[in-house]
Computed example of a mutant assay.
Amino acid sequence: MMLDLLGGFGEKGRTSLAVCSGKDRILLDVGIKVGASGADYYPALNGSVADIDALFVSHAHEDHIGALSWLLSRGYAGPIFMTAETRDEAPATLAGYAEPEDFRRFPFPEDRLELFEPGDTLNSGNFTIRTGRSGHVVGGVWFAVDDGESRVAYSADVVPDSNVFVMDTIPHCDLLVLDASYGA
């Protein structure tokens, strides 16, 4: 398994992580960087988006979903996995943070969504993706991606000690990637 850090690491915003194994490639989050412009506003996604099999969105904050219309404008045609709560909040986030022309041409794609509940296990190619609540927002989740040989777990804005939201235990993994910009 190989990971490409496309943004959000060593910076606040544009969180995005590509996970590759063999011919399979998925994207975890597709955020923007508030206050940036040009290429720095979007994930550092090199090359074509045609090789991305699926997009998994952790929650509807701009630094995790704000570049969705941009990704669609570049030809992403695969499924988009998210919780119902993320689906409900995402259109307003995109309206506020997507480039107006991208958002006009590529509005929130309701017909392409694959909804899941935290705790569900999902599949894409040779990947098995477990999900659980992240403790950050309603509908916010972590992903544990397994290719049969190794497992990487990713949680966006992880809050294990929230007094409001539950965080499910992240399963054993070979690599843990946390977006903890709001953590204690």
Results as ranks from 00 to 15, higher is better:
residue 112 R to N: 04
residue 112 R to P: 02
residue 113 L to Y: 00
residue 113 L to V: 05
residue 113 L to M: 14
residue 113 L to P: 00
residue 113 L to C: 06
residue 114 E to I: 13
residue 114 E to F: 05
residue 115 L to E: 09
residue 115 L to F: 03
residue 115 L to G: 00
residue 115 L to Y: 04
residue 116 F to I: 04
residue 117 E to H: 15
residue 117 E to A: 14
residue 117 E to M: 12
residue 118 P to Y: 05
residue 118 P to T: 11
residue 119 G to F: 05
residue 119 G to E: 08
residue 119 G to S: 05
residue 119 G to Y: 10
residue 120 D to P: 03
residue 120 D to V: 04
residue 120 D to K: 01
residue 121 T to N: 13
residue 121 T to K: 14
residue 121 T to W: 05
residue 122 L to F: 13
residue 122 L to W: 13
residue 122 L to G: 13
residue 123 N to P: 01
residue 123 N to R: 12
residue 124 S to C: 14
residue 125 G to R: 09
residue 125 G to I: 08
residue 125 G to L: 10
residue 126 N to Q: 12
residue 126 N to I: 11
residue 126 N to V: 09
residue 126 N to Y: 01
residue 127 F to G: 02
residue 127 F to E: 07
residue 127 F to D: 08
residue 128 T to H: 02
residue 129 I to L: 11
residue 129 I to W: 01
residue 129 I to Q: 06
residue 130 R to L: 05
residue 130 R to P: 00
residue 130 R to G: 03
residue 130 R to W: 03
residue 131 T to K: 03
residue 131 T to N: 03
residue 131 T to S: 08
residue 131 T to L: 05
residue 131 T to G: 02
residue 132 G to A: 14
residue 132 G to C: 12
residue 132 G to Y: 03
residue 132 G to K: 03
residue 133 R to D: 06
residue 134 S to V: 13
residue 134 S to G: 10
residue 135 G to Q: 02
residue 135 G to N: 00
residue 135 G to C: 01
residue 136 H to T: 08
residue 136 H to I: 05
residue 136 H to A: 05
residue 137 V to F: 07
residue 137 V to P: 02
residue 138 V to E: 15
residue 138 V to T: 12
residue 139 G to A: 08
residue 139 G to W: 01
residue 139 G to L: 02
residue 140 G to E: 07
residue 140 G to F: 14
residue 141 V to Y: 12
residue 142 W to Y: 15
residue 142 W to P: 02
residue 143 F to L: 06
residue 143 F to M: 08
residue 143 F to E: 08
residue 144 A to E: 02
residue 145 V to W: 04
residue 145 V to T: 09
residue 145 V to I: 15
residue 145 V to H: 13
residue 146 D to I: 05
residue 146 D to A: 04
residue 146 D to M: 03
residue 146 D to N: 11
residue 146 D to T: 03
residue 147 D to T: 01
residue 147 D to M: 03
residue 148 G to Q: 13
residue 148 G to R: 14
residue 148 G to E: 04
residue 148 G to F: 14
residue 149 E to C: 13
residue 150 S to K: 09
residue 152 V to M: 02
residue 152 V to W: 00
residue 152 V to P: 07
residue 152 V to E: 01
residue 152 V to A: 02
residue 153 A to K: 15
residue 154 Y to G: 09
residue 154 Y to C: 13
residue 155 S to P: 09
residue 155 S to N: 10
residue 155 S to I: 12
residue 155 S to M: 09
residue 156 A to T: 08
residue 156 A to G: 15
residue 156 A to E: 07
residue 156 A to I: 13
residue 156 A to L: 06
residue 157 D to W: 10
residue 157 D to R: 05
residue 157 D to A: 09
residue 158 V to N: 08
residue 158 V to R: 15
residue 158 V to K: 04
residue 158 V to C: 10
residue 158 V to D: 06
residue 159 V to F: 09
residue 159 V to C: 13
residue 159 V to P: 00
residue 160 P to S: 10
residue 160 P to Q: 01
residue 160 P to E: 05
residue 160 P to R: 03
residue 161 D to P: 04
residue 162 S to F: 10
residue 162 S to R: 07
residue 162 S to W: 11
residue 162 S to K: 10
residue 162 S to L: 06
